[in-house]
């Protein structure tokens, strides 16, 4: 028995890292969130004051709303577009690998580079998008895409989808490749048209790929920070002010460590809630199909 337990010593170093970098920080965050700690000096216990502040100002409710709205837009558009690309490429073996690689390329670039490049593309001063619109005679649509509160969040969401739609496509393509040949063959022999095979045969069998894609892109977008940080700094009029941006600004703009910690705890709760709801729903959906 003694000998059998020794094997667990191998997990000890990794457990230590997880304890130091995830468990202890989360507990410390929880503790700091009840103080007015400002980075230096003594921290005073202030009870629920930080959470009251979070609940009583519309600015923070707005940050949650912006974060969730951004997540929904990106997850829905990216999943549907990736599915469309994958369904088409599944039927085009000759160009499949080439197109998959091309679509994947933006995911190799960093948020920082992508943010800067798209900031200029959207720019009202000699930016690429307005110039393109003018070139095809649609000048009337031209605007400062990131300077307008009505379009800024959508513009950033579009950039995010552009970056990662290749990732989604690649995961769906794995799902398509795992569909047994006989099923597709049978569909073809029964005279099912291409879109009928997609809707009645392939789509239900892709439930697993849907789950992976939706969970991955949700985790990735709930914490969105870099694109709004580089492209808009949360503006205009806080239209792109996500929760993670608010955390970093409280931390390093205002040195409100206590309040930033409270926001971190709110974020953790939000992520856990979304993950639980989504996981429960998607797994049940997989079992039903």
């Amino acid at each position: 028995m003694h000998r059998n337990l020794r094997i667990y010593w191998l997990t000890a170093p990794a457990l230590l890292v997880i304890a130091c970098f995830f468990i202890y920080p989360i507990l410390l965050s929880l503790q700091m969130s009840f103080t007015d700690f400002r980075g230096v000096g003594e921290a005073e216990y202030v009870g629920w004051k930080n959470y009251d502040r979070f609940l009583s100002r519309s600015r923070y409710a707005n940050a949650i709303w912006v974060t969730l709205k951004f997540t929904v837009i990106v997850v829905v558009v990216q999943t549907l577009l990736g599915l469309l690309f994958a369904a088409l490429l599944h039927r085009m073996p000759a160009i499949r690998n080439f197109c998959r690689a091309v679509l994947f390329t933006p995911a190799m670039m960093s948020f920082v580079v992508v943010g800067y490049v798209w900031q200029f593309i959207y720019s009202p001063f000699s930016g690429g998008l307005n110039a393109l619109l003018a070139a095809v005679g649609l000048d009337s649509l031209a605007r400062g895409w990131l300077g307008d509160p009505d379009t800024a969040l959508y513009a950033i969401a579009f950039t995010h989808v552009w970056m990662f739609v290749g990732y989604t496509t690649a995961i769906f393509l794995v799902g398509f490749a795992n569909i047994p040949q006989e099923i597709e063959e049978a569909g073809r022999l029964d005279g099912a048209k291409s879109w009928q095979r997609f809707w009645y045969l392939e789509r239900p069998l892709l439930a697993g790929s849907f789950t992976v894609n939706i969970i991955l892109s949700t985790i990735g977008t709930l914490k969105t920070f870099e694109l709004p940080f580089i492209m808009t700094r949360g503006g205009p009029d806080r239209a792109t002010n996500t929760l993670s941006l608010e955390i970093v600004n409280n931390l390093f703009g205002a040195y409100r460590f206590g309040f930033a910690s409270a926001l971190s705890i709110v974020m953790l709760i939000m992520v856990v809630l979304v993950a639980l709801v989504q996981n429960g729903y998607l797994r049940r959906r997989e079992e039903n199909t």
């Binding site: 989360i26 970093v248 460590f257 910690s261």
Partner: peptide, 20 residues
């Protein structure tokens, strides 16, 4: 615990890690 680490966004731990 590992799953917890996988799901925790860096922004949740960034403040305490900076202090530590």
């Amino acid at each position: 615990l590992v799953a917890l680490g996988l799901a925790t966004p860096p922004f949740v731990t960034i403040t305490p890690i900076y202090v530590i």
